[in-house]
């Protein structure tokens, strides 16, 4: 089986300071990987390097493209990379307003990715938008409302619909449940899990919330000072942590 994403020795420096270094891993189709660590551990830097938002200083991020097999996305041309991020990739931001167009209706937000890949039938676009709003539990009669009048949880669900409408194969998520109420978080987690399963998505989720990764991620990487210090099955890393820092991290949270 070919990995969907093959990451080799990714490194990113901020001047003399390490953003992340020596990160390598394979992600297979259908796998959800969590990346945990405290603020400044390099997990967001890593995610942005993987998603093409930051140019890494070294290393390769190879993605199994539909037409040409494994391609290094770090060295591919920008139009190709941007095309990937509109089609096979998705990025869910922590703050929905970073991932949504706040002055465009919910339907327009969901439809944008379709129109970006040349959907030109209004009726079809709208039908798809309604279908996706339904899947993320937003009622169809809100389709013409702008996200500014949505609650935080709804905005986040809209962001997810907007990202998944083109049927991506890899989703990057940066603290997708951060800043939401606990009950809203649970609903979102349930939704994400269902979508991951139904669509056979692979996902990389950056979070500092160990409860979130336990419920969502099959695998886990623990980062500290820009390095991956431990990785493995999520429950194994959380229940039998090997590294001193991971042990501290796990013992520091309230029982989950």
């Amino acid at each position: 089986m070919t990995p969907l994403l093959q990451v080799e020795n990714i490194a990113k420096m901020y001047g003399a300071r390490i953003g992340c270094a020596n990160v390598s891993f394979d992600l297979y189709p259908g796998e959800v990987m969590g990346i945990v660590g405290e603020s400044g551990s390099g997990k967001s830097t890593l995610l942005n390097c993987l998603a093409g938002h930051l140019q890494p200083d070294a290393g390769a991020v190879c993605f199994d493209t539909r037409t040409e097999g494994l391609r290094n996305t770090v060295t591919m041309s920008e139009p190709e990379r941007r095309m990937l991020s509109r089609t096979d990739w998705a990025f869910v931001h922590q703050h929905a307003r970073d991932g949504l167009r706040m002055n465009v209706s919910a339907g327009g937000n969901v439809g944008e990715r379709l129109m970006a890949v040349n959907a030109r039938h209004y009726g079809d676009i709208r039908a798809k938008a309604i279908d996706w709003l339904g899947r993320v539990e937003i009622s169809a009669d809100r389709i013409d409302d702008r996200p500014t009048v949505f609650s935080g949880g709804m905005q986040q669900r809209l962001q997810i619909a907007r990202n998944l409408v083109t049927g991506p194969r890899l989703v990057f998520m940066d603290e997708p449940t951060g800043g939401l109420d606990v009950s809203v978080q649970a609903r979102l987690l349930d939704l994400l899990r269902g979508l991951v399963r139904e669509m056979g998505l692979s996902a990389i989720i950056v979070t500092h919330d160990l409860a979130v990764v336990r419920l969502l991620a099959d695998r886990l990487m623990v980062m500290k000072d820009g390095h991956v210090i431990e990785s493995g099955l999520t429950d194994q890393v959380l229940d039998d942590p090997q590294h001193a820092y991971t042990q501290l991290l796990v013992s520091s949270v309230l029982q989950v």
Binding site: S183, A186, R187, L189, D190, R193, R197, R214, L215
Partner: peptide, 17 residues
């Protein structure tokens, strides 16, 4: 250990799904 809010039926059916 399950995601809160998920129905019992879904919890039991998940290994099959």
């Amino acid at each position: 250990r399950v995601v809160p809010r998920v129905s019992t039926l879904d919890v039991v059916a998940e290994p099959l799904m």
